[in-house]
Simulated assay, not measured.
Amino acid sequence: MYFRKERDGVTLFVRLTPKSARDMIEGVEATDGGRAHLKARARAVPEDGRANAALEKLLAKWLGLAPRDVTIASGATSRVKQVRVSGDPEALAIKLSALVSPDR
């Protein structure tokens, strides 16, 4: 699963590719270890937190949330990150499932 429900939101597992041609969420991918993650791309460079800020903004827009509700929880200097999304965990889980469904 590419996210984990928490008491007051969800934690997303994201693999970010900076310096991409465009900002986008590509979908879900499984890793060799069996854990899944969202694949994201950002045009920003990985310097001075620019790529992380771009990822937070991209995820907030993708989820229809305010940017303050999305923060990098861990992995600030890594491509693989845990991103904390504040809100109702059940509603966020439904929204995430709908956004990455193959029918979309």
Rank of each mutant, 00 (worst) to 15 (best):
R35H: 14
R35E: 14
R35F: 13
A36N: 13
A36W: 13
H37N: 03
L38Q: 08
L38G: 07
L38V: 00
K39M: 14
K39V: 14
K39T: 12
K39R: 15
A40D: 01
A40I: 04
A40W: 01
R41C: 11
R41L: 14
A42E: 07
R43F: 07
A44E: 07
A44W: 04
V45C: 11
V45M: 14
V45Q: 14
P46L: 12
P46V: 09
G49R: 12
G49A: 02
G49Q: 05
R50H: 09
R50Q: 14
A51S: 12
N52T: 01
A53Y: 08
A53W: 10
A53M: 09
A53G: 12
L55K: 08
L55W: 02
E56A: 11
E56L: 04
K57N: 12
L59Y: 04
L59P: 02
L59K: 08
A60C: 10
W62M: 03
L63T: 09
L63R: 06
L65D: 03
L65W: 06
L65Y: 05
L65F: 04
L65T: 08
A66G: 06
A66I: 08
A66P: 02
A66M: 13
P67D: 10
P67C: 08
R68Y: 10
R68I: 11
D69L: 10
D69F: 08
V70G: 02
V70I: 09
T71E: 15
I72F: 01
S74H: 05
S74N: 13
S74C: 05
S74I: 03
S74L: 10
G75W: 02
G75P: 00
G75R: 09
G75L: 13
A76Q: 11
A76Y: 05
A76W: 06
T77V: 13
T77S: 13
T77R: 13
T77F: 11
S78E: 14
S78R: 15
R79Q: 15
R79E: 14
R79A: 11
V80T: 13
V80L: 15
V80W: 12
K81I: 03
K81A: 02
Q82L: 12
Q82W: 07
Q82A: 11
V83C: 06
R84L: 10
R84I: 00
V85E: 01
V85D: 01
S86L: 15
G87N: 07
D88K: 00
D88N: 15
D88I: 05
D88F: 01
